[in-house]
């Protein structure tokens, strides 16, 4: 049993045409027992950037508090919102600082920058950034998500098409993962609005 599969969870982020989407399952469990079904692993940091923190839940929650604090301090100091790329460096250096006593999370950052250019990236638990221009995945369904995203993702998806693609990719992946599932939530971030949808999914 690894810390990553103790509580379970899956997060995926994708880039579309002038938009990004980030989605998460909602299960919270302790090993094989499901305790809650309203626990999304994706949190907003600014209006247009979100961070997903699948992994050991205690660390998910501690880091969420830390990042909210650091992003708010950044806003006060710089008098502007943190950009998603800067946010990813903040997350990365926070994790690498704990190189030999890491937080057990697999963070994803997704957002639109000040020019509304899409940005997504993933990190390992010690902050090695993987920045891509298609999709990033994390959590217990990581391998499933890699497979299906590689197949269904395509460039320049409009927000509504991106929503369908990311939703189906997530739902299919968590159906084959015992540790994730029990509901899902998707955020589609466009320059004009953020659309948050709760998906109907299998509850087993």
């Amino acid at each position: 049993m690894s810390p990553g599969s103790y509580n379970g969870g899956a997060v995926v982020a994708m880039i579309g045409k002038n938009c990004v989407a980030i989605a998460s399952d909602k299960r919270f469990g302790v090993q094989m027992q499901t305790i809650g079904t309203e626990f999304s692993k994706v949190f907003p940091v600014t209006e247009k950037s979100y961070v997903g923190l699948p992994g050991l839940t205690t660390d998910t929650q501690t880091l969420q508090e830390i990042f909210r604090f650091k992003a708010n301090m950044y806003k006060l100091r710089e008098e502007r919102e943190i950009e998603p790329r800067t946010l990813s460096k903040l997350v990365s250096s926070t994790l690498y600082e704990r190189r030999w006593g890491p937080y057990f999370v697999h963070p994803l950052v997704a957002g639109l920058d000040k020019n509304n250019q899409p940005f997504i990236c993933a990190m390992d638990l010690i902050g090695c950034i993987t920045e891509t221009c298609d999709f990033v995945v994390g959590g217990t369904s990581e391998e499933n998500l890699f497979g299906i995203c590689e197949s269904v993702w395509e460039p320049d998806l409009e927000p509504e098409d991106l929503f369908e693609t990311i939703s189906q990719a997530l739902l299919c992946s968590i159906d084959r993962d015992c540790f994730a599932g029990w509901g899902a939530v998707v955020h589609v971030i466009t320059p004009e609005r953020v659309i948050t949808r709760t998906l109907k999914s299998r509850m087993d």
Binding site: E47, K48, S151, V152, E154, L157, E160, D161, F163, E164, T165, S167, Q168, L171, P191, E192, R193, V194, I195, T196, R197, T198, L199, K200
Partner: peptide, 25 residues
């Protein structure tokens, strides 16, 4: 590149709840 695409039709995914936050430009 793929010869065909796997694009899902809009409306494929069943939604329970939707909330839209409009951003001020």
């Amino acid at each position: 590149p793929k010869n065909c695409d796997y694009k899902y039709k809009r409306g494929t995914t069943a939604i329970l709840k939707e909330s839209i936050k409009d951003l001020v430009v």
